[in-house]
Design a binder for these strands. Structure first.
Lengths: 456, 456
DNA sequence: GGGTATTTGTCCGTATGTATG
DNA sequence: TCATACATACGGACAAATACC
């Protein structure tokens, strides 16, 4: 006896389908005959179509077989699987630690992702019924690569075409791919010091030897780079991480010279180019490269959403062939197509303009608040663009106490501790993750613990 | 065959109306019966209403007559001369290097991806406004990992919990991650021969030494595996690729013994487990493992869509810590969340049941067609599950000619050429990518060239 | 045991409700 | 508000399998 509720919101054929499925799983044996469509329709006062459609769903899912003009019979494929009687020993989800304020520089403001828009575009994309059943271009969808190339040429002065773009799946994936390409020719990486730790770690994990090259006020020390004899260097020329310095044009040319003479390669990470708000943004180093020694690395994680998992490489043409072979597309096709359309319809440009304006406002506010609250006890170490203001104390200061107090107050601070040449210790007061209206409160909270650490 | 463009701004019923009108004028005779509304709706994936409305317009304009409960028939008033040669703007389809028939085993039937459903669930997910602005769990979303664990436990007999699952971004990415983990402890991989070339290539690319171990009728040769002294082996125990053999329980236990004694690891690739249709599927090797020597590899590419880029690893607990650190989430959050919900609401189970049922049907049809068309000139090499029937000629046969003819007819054939022990050459007649109604035509076309290659 | 009435799956046309933009 | 597209629900027509006389 099936329970069918005519007043339920659940359609009749679905109700019936579920009831019969239950019956098959619990009470019926292989080969048992189901009641005929007409019989069920009569008994439960349903139309034949409803019953028919319930049966046909069960048929499609393999619960029953149909023998035309004869009846429906329970199939032999309803194995009880391997279900253990006990429920899964679900271990507790690891508790994510949450902070009151996190001064990390490369955070995105909550709700900055254009959800509504993304939804609309996604729906358009999915209605276009692309072929989701075959494998796709290993470098990423051509249309998306084209949009990225257009953007890079126009906004970053990069010199490339769509075929040089490879869509990856986040910064680390980009680096991983690169390493796969290079590891037959390179085993040593030169990297700025202080520099981006995550890049160093990826290469270290792949057993690269790391040569730390100091960073001066004109960026990486070229003489020491030359002396290191490395043939591969990772740099952040537009805004050095974490110092924020920019390599001037003269040094850029020297760097390219170095690469050409030594048959070396330069990995240019343009990590925060989308976020800065200079009136005259610095074009990419790659655009100056005439001989194909620069590999350009970019990402949408910091400007759009880290949850999308889209980044890209721009590789010199001579390296292109190496990417064919076992490599495969890395990013969900829906996401690629949606981003392609997002860019193509101009939303990307609009989005960037929006966050740039916002970041400029936030930078000014952050600076004002810091100066007001910390006043003469602090000096600002770097002033350039970027999403953080680096400060250090002008007075005797107890760094250890600061760390402890910050933990106690659940304020996450970020230090630039590495030493390059002389001692270099600063706090990176990032504002990327704060909303405009949060900044004052955040600085206030920080100011309280800061002042406690000043040694009289 | 009507051309219906779902993207077009022209309403579907209008498009259909025009197409049918064209058909009536050019190809149909008075009294010919049109296909039923339901049939057309199914074939072109339209709603019955759209078709009905096209038909009713044709009815109104006198192209067809309706005989209720019986069908629509072409009337005798279709004067051919009033038709204007209006703009024949049928767009050219992009010419992909497409095959007439591709007998690859692991293809998905076109349109098998549940687009509508996916769209609906995606919209639900995006309306929940998750936090898209922070970085997420590096192993993959917890909820999704839980769903995968539930599925693996119940349907594959895998012994795991959600924390052992790591969401990756396709088979090669899974392997890449694994290699990163292992390369400090392993440099040699044992692999079945013949075996899955893509797995071998990934390891080769990472400079692994490869030991090819022959496959017998009980799967990988255990004695030779032992003699190889490898400490890492890649196998496909449920359906060996490409021979289709299954490792029996006795050998599975021996394999696990070997791993335990030699402190070795087993990579179990369960690549086609979702697709097969045996009444009693073979549980995973991993489920027998009591000491944590098995790494289980699975994917959604073959059962749902390769465009999603979702695969997963199940790693033994002792390896888990190694995965923290620089690794980062690999799959678009939207996609993860959508899949999580897709599984949670039971659609995954239903989807699997459907494709299994379909595959069973297709297997039977394929076998029947092959036997009918090739008859005594062929013998079936393997009969087990899987998505291909392996055949080889029983008569003198010109393999070279077959290859050439296949190219000429744009039929893509797949060979199992590798020799293991004795000569072993077979054609893998895969049916995964065909729709049910295509199989007969595909085999017919193949049969034509097959017979030309028989040497009298 | 052979013809006939009934049952049965399947295909069909139609009407109405509902979500979407 | 309106058109479009789809989901839900109804009952008729048909041919083959089955049961019955």
């Amino acid at each position: 006896m099936y329970l069918i509720d005519k007043n339920s919101k659940i359609p009749l054929h679905i109700q019936l389908y579920k009831e019969i499925k239950k019956e098959i799983i619990h009470n019926l044996k292989v080969g048992d005959k189901l009641q005929s469509i007409r019989k069920v329709a009569t008994i439960y006062n349903l139309s034949k179509t409803s019953v028919e459609s319930a049966y046909s769903q069960l048929l499609a899912e393999g619960y029953i077989d149909s023998y035309p003009k004869s009846g429906y019979f329970v199939t032999d494929t309803n194995y009880k699987n391997f279900k253990k009687d006990s429920n899964i020993d679900i271990e507790k989800k690891e508790q994510k630690d949450d902070f009151l304020y996190d001064f990390f520089h490369a955070r995105l403001e909550k709700d900055s992702f254009p959800l509504k828009l993304w939804k609309r575009i996604f729906n358009k994309v999915i209605d276009e019924s692309i072929d989701f059943c075959t494998y796709h271009d290993a470098k990423g969808e051509y249309g998306l690569r084209l949009e990225i190339a257009k953007y890079l040429i126009e906004s970053r002065g990069v010199n490339c075409n769509a075929n040089q773009i490879i869509v990856c799946n986040g910064f680390i994936n980009s680096m991983g791919l690169l390493i796969k390409l290079l590891n037959k020719k390179h085993d040593t990486l030169a990297i700025e010091h202080p520099g981006y730790y995550a890049a160093r770690e990826v290469f270290e994990l792949s057993n690269y030897k790391i040569k730390k090259i100091p960073v001066g006020k004109n960026g990486i020390d070229l003489r020491k780079l030359e002396k290191s004899e490395a043939k591969l260097v990772y740099i952040t020329p537009s805004h050095q991480f974490p110092t924020g310095v920019t390599i001037p044009i003269s040094n850029r040319l020297k760097l390219l010279d170095w690469a050409e003479k030594n048959d070396a390669l330069i990995i240019e990470d343009d990590y925060d180019s989308e976020l800065t708000y200079e009136t005259r943004p610095i074009p990419a180093l790659q655009g100056l490269d005439r001989v194909g020694r620069v590999i350009y690395v970019g990402t949408f994680s910091k400007s759009l959403s880290p949850a999308l998992r889209i980044s890209y490489l721009v590789v010199p043409k001579f390296l292109l062939e190496e990417f064919s072979g076992v490599f495969e597309s890395r990013v969900c096709l829906f996401t690629q197509k949606t981003l392609e359309r997002f860019m193509n319809e101009g939303h990307w440009d609009r989005h960037l303009r929006k966050i740039r304006t916002l970041n400029k406002k936030k930078y000014n506010l952050m600076k004002k608040c810091l100066e007001e609250k910390l006043g003469s006890s602090m000096k600002i170490v770097n002033q350039g663009g970027g999403l953080a203001i680096h400060i250090s104390p002008k007075v005797s200061f107890d760094w250890n106490k600061l760390e402890k107090l910050a933990i106690k107050k659940t304020i996450k601070l970020h230090y630039a501790k590495e030493k390059s040449g002389g001692e270099w210790q600063a706090l990176m007061m990032g504002f990327g993750g704060f909303k405009e209206e949060e900044i004052e409160d955040a600085v206030n909270s920080f100011s309280e613990i800061w002042h406690e650490c000043i040694i009289e």
